[in-house]
């Protein structure tokens, strides 16, 4: 049994893959708390697709710089979505739909027309642990450090602007700057985890750990570390299972997340569902009515 478990660890590519998958799960779980609580789950889905456009385009025109190019592309898409949603009558969901799917379509078209000199199309879509470079590992570590520093230094402003952006705005929080910072961190997190998780599955790992953590706790601080741990465990276990099952790593990581969600749902039952009931797009839809009780 132990031999079987240890068997894949003899391969350097798997060791790298395991490290990257665990870190990726933790990073997406950490960032996902803010995304889910802001009712922005759809933006994670959209941005991963937008990044794919930059990924494809820069492989063609500047293959050595495709990571940087895709990152800049993702950040530009995130900021464009924020601006379009804020300055026009178009809602955030429609802005995400237009900007990110157009970017994804461009990526697919470029791949189809010119092929690629970097990672294969399927790998970009569904994730792969083959060919992970030291540069990618260092890049992921740097994004983890940057994200941790951003949240540590701006924790209260992030929490306030996530819970109540209007009041945060009049209480001295620069909500616009906080949102832009979060979008940049999200874009970088998606980019850094893209190779292992895959474009189409990144959004799931942004959402699942955060929702599971929400079902387990009513405290924001506890939700933050629980989501990080759940994401890391999903990455670790998913990567192991993908080796034995012979399926893409991203697919198995998301499936493990789905199993964890189902188990926690079964254990917490109605309480967990009630806790996660407010994780819809509360920022742009009908207000949630307060319970009306006597003092």
């Amino acid at each position: 049994m132990m031999d079987t478990i240890l068997e894949p660890l003899q391969f350097a590519f798997f060791q790298k893959g395991l490290l990257v998958a665990t870190l990726s799960g933790a990073l997406l779980g950490f960032v996902g708390v803010f995304i889910v609580l802001r009712g922005m789950s759809y933006i994670g889905h959209g941005l991963s697709h937008a990044v794919f456009g930059g990924f494809a385009a820069f492989q063609l025109f500047a293959a050595q710089l495709y990571i940087i190019g895709a990152g800049l592309w993702g950040i530009a898409s995130a900021l464009a979505i924020t601006q379009v949603a804020r300055r026009s009558r178009v809602g955030a969901d429609a802005a995400i739909g237009v900007i990110t799917t157009a970017s994804f379509a461009l990526g697919v078209a470029l791949f189809a027309k010119f092929g690629t000199s970097g990672p294969a199309f399927d790998n970009a879509l569904f994730g792969s642990i083959l060919g992970i470079t030291s540069m990618q590992i260092w890049g992921l570590l740097a994004v983890c450090a940057l994200t941790g520093a951003f949240v540590f230094l701006r924790y209260r402003a992030l929490l306030f602007s996530t819970f109540d952006p209007d009041v945060a705005d009049v209480s001295g929080v620069n909500v616009g700057r906080i949102e832009a910072g979060l979008m940049i961190v999200l874009s970088l997190a998606i980019l850094a985890t893209l190779t292992v998780i895959g474009v189409t599955l990144v959004a799931a790992m942004l959402v699942i750990p955060a929702v599971v953590a929400r079902m387990l706790t009513d405290s924001f601080g506890r939700m933050l570390w629980l989501s990080t741990v759940i994401g890391a465990v999903c990455g670790l276990v998913g990567m192991y299972l993908s080796y034995f099952a012979g399926v893409p790593s991203g697919t198995m990581i998301v499936l493990v997340g789905a199993v964890v969600f189902t188990v926690v749902l079964a254990v917490t039952g109605g309480k967990g569902l009630r806790r996660s009931a407010g994780l819809d797009d509360h920022g742009a839809t009908e207000p949630v009515r307060a319970p009306v009780n006597a003092l």
């Binding site: 609580l37 209260r156 306030f160 819970f163 001295g172 806790r275 009931a277 994780l279 949630v288």
Partner: peptide
């Protein structure tokens, strides 16, 4: 207000100290 947001009374009050 989103009353399902995961904060305690203490955390909510402390938010304004930014």
């Amino acid at each position: 207000v989103n009353w399902d947001f995961p904060v305690t009374v203490f955390e909510c009050v402390l938010m304004s100290r930014t």
